[in-house]
Simulated scan of single mutants.
Amino acid sequence: MYMDNPDDRNDLVQEMTYQLWKSYQRFEGNSQFSTWMYRVCLNTALTFFKKEDKKVKTNVIREDFDRIDVDDSNEKENQLNHFYKAVQSLNGVEKAIIFLYLEGKSHKEIGDDLGISEGNARVKLNRTKDKLQQIIKANGYEF
């Protein structure tokens, strides 16, 4: 969900797998194994974005829509397309914040996952929501 291009997704998955393998010895058991894996993968994704420092493409990848429950109406599909295009124009950290929010994570959980304070997570989330709204309006669509 963090990369537009399938090749970039494969590179990121490979890097995540490598980082999990490399850091497995440091797993201390202070949290659930799945939580530790999630944290390593999220940090890897964020680091990947910083290293690449590339412009996010705005082409829509249809496979990502398969995970979202959408009714058959054209209006819902249109809204979803505008939202997804807007999300693709965000930077990596903003994408992570929005996706964590859409997963139902609290501000504290988002902050913990990103290594920032709860207050900072709240501010970044609100700014990202505002940015999404501006992008959607600028593209001539308003929910």
Rank of each mutant, 00 (worst) to 15 (best):
W21T: 07
S23C: 04
A86S: 03
S73R: 11
L46G: 00
Q134Y: 15
V123R: 13
L125R: 11
K95L: 07
V40T: 05
F99S: 03
K22H: 10
G29S: 01
R9F: 07
K129I: 04
I116T: 06
D8Y: 01
S106E: 04
D72L: 13
D112T: 04
F49N: 02
D53Y: 05
G29Q: 00
T58P: 01
E109Y: 03
L12N: 04
S73D: 05
D53V: 05
L125E: 03
K105P: 07
D71G: 05
K131V: 11
K51T: 11
D71F: 05
K137D: 13
K137M: 08
E28N: 14
R9N: 08
L102I: 06
N78E: 15
E52F: 09
I135E: 02
Q134P: 09
R122C: 04
T44F: 08
Q32R: 03
L42A: 07
M37W: 00
M37D: 02
N5E: 07
L42G: 05
V56H: 13
K108W: 07
I110E: 00
E15M: 15
T47H: 08
N10P: 04
V60K: 03
E63A: 08
M3H: 01
K50I: 12
Q14W: 06
H107V: 14
L100S: 06
I116S: 04
L90A: 04
I61E: 15
I97H: 06
V123E: 09
G115F: 01
D53H: 12
G92F: 01
F83S: 00
K57W: 08
K108Q: 15
L46H: 01
T58Y: 02
L100I: 05
K76F: 07
D8W: 00
V123H: 11
V123L: 11
Q19M: 15
V60P: 01
S117N: 10
G115D: 07
T35V: 11
I110V: 12
T44H: 04
Q14S: 15
S31E: 14
